[in-house]
């Protein structure tokens, strides 16, 4: 059978997302008796090379410099055309989301977004995904080949290691376009040195109910005590209180912390869709009927303005 390809970015390293994509790829490859072929875009360090070689049957490196949409799309298309895979799996980073449908089109395949589970049924790839803002689940059967799927990568178990494997690592031979009509001319990282929200163990998140940007300063104190990262609902981001990169939800980050503390977040289904992988959700909300409580392990019905200062004091005391 034809290969299953996983597409990884060197800039991310072999992070939890890459591990999830590799795990999903390995299981799909096993289901159809195929090889797992990893494509790394960019220049991976030695650690990433070794890690990917330990899980894949073959590795191709496409060292095409910093990400430029049209060039990267051209490179991936060429590699996939040569390998003629039956499936191409990508992570849920923005670049992969940007590439996936166009790659599928160029390969004559079908794409689907935000896969939560992958199955092979009578030779066709089926993907489970959340729809209607998290209110329903759909199973989508891809009709054309290859199946190009970007996955909610951290929801998938990592691939098993093959320590005895001697995996060939080869550079891709590419004929890249010299003139393209779009060029990324500035890249700005707003999160600074902070770890990625998707990998956070504890998240403190604020919503529309905060009423203004200032209360996020208080939440930051709470986050500092808990070693937590900060996030926000779409309403708080749209209001300009915090950067868009803080947004958690259907169209923001999909997070999976051990604890998600939602402060003054009502819990629109599009927000809940971004936290469905959290192990524990707790909320502070003045409205006992707020939908967020339906997803919570524990909660407190009260004005956050009264709760947060007391909570900071208590947690400080308990932590000592």
């Amino acid at each position: 059978m034809n290969d299953v390809i996983i597409s990884l970015f060197a800039s991310a390293g072999y992070d939890r997302a890459a591990q999830g994509v590799a795990g999903a790829g390995r299981r799909l490859a096993a289901d159809c008796g195929a090889q797992l072929h990893a494509v790394i875009i960019g220049a991976p360090d030695a650690a990433m090379k070794a890690a990917v070689a330990a899980v894949a049957d073959a590795v191709t490196i496409a060292d095409i410099g910093d990400y430029q949409t049209e060039i990267c799309l051209s490179a991936l298309t060429q590699i996939c055309k040569t390998l003629a895979p039956q499936a191409v799996l990508l992570s849920n980073d923005f670049y992969s989301q940007e590439l996936a449908p166009r790659l599928a089109h160029r390969l004559g395949g079908s794409a689907v977004a935000d896969g939560l589970a992958l199955n092979l049924v009578e030779g066709k790839v089926r993907v489970n995904r959340s729809v209607y803002g998290g209110k329903a689940m759909a199973t989508i059967e891809l009709q054309r080949s290859p199946a190009v799927v970007w996955l909610r990568a951290r929801a998938f178990d990592p691939a098993p290691l093959r320590p005895e494997a001697t995996t060939a690592i080869q550079p891709a031979t590419l004929d890249l376009p010299t003139r393209v009509s779009t060029t990324i001319i500035e890249r700005k990282v707003e999160a600074g040195d902070e770890a990625r929200l998707e990998d956070a163990k504890v998240i403190v998140s604020g919503g529309r109910g905060l009423g203004s940007p200032e209360p996020f300063n208080e939440l930051q104190k709470l986050a500092n005590i808990l070693g937590a990262q900060m996030a926000a609902s779409r309403a708080a981001c749209d209001a300009g209180w915090v950067p868009p990169s803080w947004q958690v939800g259907q169209t923001g980050k999909k997070v999976a912390p051990g604890l998600y503390l939602a402060v003054a977040i009502h819990g629109a289904s599009q927000h809940l869709a971004g936290i469905s992988d959290a192990k524990n959700i707790a909320a502070i909300n003045i409205d006992k009927d707020a939908p967020i409580f339906k997803q919570c392990r524990f909660g407190i019905v009260e004005d956050y303005r009264k709760v947060v200062p007391l909570l900071i004091a208590r947690l400080n005391a308990l932590k000592k």
């Binding site: 923005f94 500035e186 990169s245």
Partner: peptide, 9 residues
């Protein structure tokens, strides 16, 4: 917008 911030194109 990107995962970590923004880009100008």
């Amino acid at each position: 917008q990107t995962d970590v911030g923004y880009e100008r194109v």
